[in-house]
Design a protein around this nucleic acid. Structure first.
Lengths: 212, 212, 212, 212
DNA sequence: GATGAATGAGCGTTCATTCAT
DNA sequence: CATGAATGAACGCTCATTCAT
């Protein structure tokens, strides 16, 4: 009479999480195309038809992984900094949370993310998430600028934010590839890249191309 | 006595370029996995066995594409700035050349590059190229720092350079996705992100995490 | 003390009819192979294992459908004409009943029938029904012939009857495909095909191949 | 140094016929759905991908079979009777040719044909052929009627012709199921069904439903 | 040198069918 | 009585790759 009801016949919700765990693992290890539904099913300790019954097609399964991991990451970041704090504190806490998350999910999100960037069908799903991040960062910059009585065109804000997000993603890749690296330290380095430049912008300093 | 006007029987070097052109086109349009050797051969106006004879397996073919396009890009960048110019000028000219190249090869390199990031087999090939860029950027920073009598640990230099390269790649993606965007303007924006922060570093300003 | 108003727990016979209704509908719409037990169960508002418990395997279920619909049709025909009427009246009433039935069950029997003709496992079930019809028609012909003092070999009778049944089935298909067509008019047309020829036979007129 | 070039590497046209032969055989034996591409390929002595390369999808393959056999049959019928002969002679020769063809291809066309009737995707392909036959038969009737100074509404002509074609198909089924039966004799019987009635029509005799 | 012909291997997907609850 | 959970077994299809000519 074990507490855990049995070994099999688990409720749907549980099985779905098992499958997603396995899928994240296999997609990460092999990449989307090289991953086989057989391996995912086997890794989840379940037969293939169950995967199709619960999570659908291979693409849908991948999107489900993307979704779960993305949501988790967004929550980790969102819960890190209250919106009423100063911009640098918010940025720092957000970055720290982000790199902390990536460091703790090296096999999961970071690699999933790398997969998704390359495959067309998932570009949009990803673009949505990145767009949210870009928007948040641009909003922070805009807020701080206005507090200083300055302003930047929307497109410039967006591109700068885009670049910062890109730099962050890049360092996340670097972190995922360097298992011994410290997430917090990486966040500090990112701050040095991001904030020093941003602070200049806040003070009205800009760079202009030379005459040539 | 060949009366056939020598349409076929082209010298090997020419054929190889035709194949690479076709391969870049197809890989870009379809992505690595969705691309089929059949389509590449047909697009090159040649039979499949010839592709195998000249450029080898599908992976090798992709690497060859990567290689050719990468080399072209590196040359475009390298030729843009003499190494004895000041760091900001070198950086600016390099970025301008880079974004100019990407803008002119939106369908080619940019997409190839995006493909390569996601597929494990090509990570190394790509990592090598990126490492060269990181090294160059880190070298420029180091050089400029020392000119100011300052110094940064190698790892810090590398990570900062890595972040800048990542931001640049990100904007290259953005550029590839916005056909109407101006490469030079994009380069200017990147300079505003990169140089303002870097200049701070040169003057000894750094950001440190708060006590929290 | 069941307060639940007895929505479920219906008596077996009722459930079986629900299932058969659903099965006929789905088999008609999709065809035997394309029909899935899932859809049938869902359409019947019941779980799949119940279908298996009550009506057995997919093939058995199909046969059950065939059986029910076939019996209904046979009854409709059989009740249409008393056996002591003249042959032409019996034939007319039988045809009228048949086309009436098909017209009223376009989605049911007609399609079921078309399905069954093509799938080997059900050929026999169908052949039995058709054989009964052929026998009846042949019997009518024989009876009428003998009343005229004539006779036809059993095999000839059978083949002629077979052809008439075939023509009738064909027109039933035609009727099922032309929802606006009138069953009674179709029956009249069939009589014109069947009876004019048969009447000739009754008067001893036969066709013989030319010398050629 | 055999006259037949080799065992393998046959030209495409030859292989296609081999495949069609095998496909007709397997489709006939198993039915469309139960037939597997593996079995067809194996029976043709070739690997599966070749089948897909040359003849396409399973459905396309089936249509190709239908097409080849149908064309052969139509040619057999068309070549049997010159259009300037009297209607009964034309009908007789056409039927004789048809039953001769079916009798000679019991395993091929007749069974294929039965398959096609049931499966929706092929209904149209088949309907086209049947429509051609119906048109020819209706044309013959119309021609003969006008020669007698009579006329029938187009719809009536069509339905009568449809019934005759249906009766013929039915006897073809019967013939296919009775390997010992004689095709010519079957044709004669069909003439007795078809022509005796048709001749009545030609003489203005029609059947009308009784008052009831 | 160049190609049409050919294949081994594998993957995504579906479905009828049955336990265990 | 009734069902959600689970699976074995196939099947259609594709593709990179290689002979034989």
């Amino acid at each position: 009479m074990p507490t855990v009801p049995a070994f099999k016949r688990l409720p749907r919700a549980v099985r779905e999480q098992q499958m997603l765990d396995a899928a994240v693992k296999v997609f990460s290890r092999r990449g989307f195309h090289a991953a086989s539904m057989d391996e995912i099913a086997e890794d989840a300790g379940i037969s293939k038809p169950m995967v199709y019954a619960y999570l659908g097609t291979k693409e849908e399964l991948f999107v489900a992984c993307l979704h779960r991991e993305g949501t988790r990451m967004m929550q980790a970041i969102a819960g890190a900094a209250a919106p009423d704090l100063p911009a640098d504190i918010r940025l720092w806490r957000g970055l720290r949370a982000f790199f902390g998350f990536v460091g703790a999910h090296r096999d999961g999100w970071a690699v999933l993310y790398r997969q998704a960037r390359g495959e067309q069908p998932f570009a949009s799903e990803l673009a949505t998430m990145r767009a949210r991040l870009v928007e948040v960062v641009a909003g922070m910059l805009d807020h701080a600028l206005r507090a200083e009585g300055r302003e930047l065109a929307a497109i410039d804000l967006e591109v700068v934010a885009y670049a910062l997000v890109g730099a962050t993603e890049s360092l996340a890749d670097w972190l995922a590839d360097h298992p011994e690296a410290d997430p917090e330290k990486t966040a500090t380095r990112m701050m040095n890249v991001a904030w020093l430049g941003a602070a200049q912008l806040l003070h009205g300093v800009t760079w202009r191309p030379p005459a040539d």
